[in-house]
């Protein structure tokens, strides 16, 4: 068993465990912190899969920007842990059954797939910034520009929604 194999399994266990803690921890701030651990372990998987560019983007965008936004909003809203009402036990039981059956049916779906025809020696250099940049700015240059339009509209929308209304509607 090689080092990278052990690392891959360990990162998988860490990500699943912290994902479960995100769902089941009572305090929302603990949930955010566990979600950061999950994102870091997924970033570790990206390193093992030779996707260095996405590793950096995952750390900066998810673990950095998005999680800071979550923590900021959470602390702005000042939620106590006892303010969240719980769903009934019957509903929780039904939800767990539903999620388990989704899991089992997706596993069964994957099992039905035959040979994937993966190449035995794939190009290991595709995840580098240079190669991804070449593809991004040649083949995907229009989606790249459109995503900037999406960001502008997202920013304007967030400011418009978050603005305090000057007149009370109700």
């Amino acid at each position: 068993m090689g080092v990278s194999e052990i690392l891959a399994y360990a990162l998988g266990i860490i990500s699943v465990a912290s994902a479960l803690l995100v769902v089941f921890s009572k305090n929302p701030i603990h949930s955010v912190l566990y979600l950061i651990i999950t994102f870091f372990s997924i970033a570790g998987q990206y390193v093992l899969l030779n996707a260095q560019f996405l590793f950096i983007v995952q750390i900066i965008v998810y673990s950095g920007a998005i999680m800071v936004l979550f923590l900021f909003v959470l602390m702005l809203l000042n939620l106590n842990k006892d303010t969240e009402p719980q769903k009934s036990n019957l509903f929780k039981f039904i939800s767990i059954i539903t999620a388990c059956s989704l899991f089992i049916s997706m596993i069964a779906m994957v099992k039905g797939v035959g040979n994937l025809n993966l190449p035995s020696e794939p190009d290991s250099q595709i995840g580098l910034v240079k190669n991804l940049g070449m593809v991004l700015f040649s083949k995907y240059v229009i989606p790249f520009e459109l995503s900037s339009v999406l960001f502008i509209s997202g920013m304007v929308g967030a400011v418009m929604i978050g603005k305090k209304e000057t007149h009370d509607i109700n």
């Binding site: 995100v22 769903k87 929780k92 999620a99």
Partner: peptide
């Protein structure tokens, strides 16, 4: 599936 479970059982 854990994400789906979280969407189903949490209300926050």
């Amino acid at each position: 599936s854990i994400g789906v479970l979280g969407v189903l059982i949490r209300r926050n």
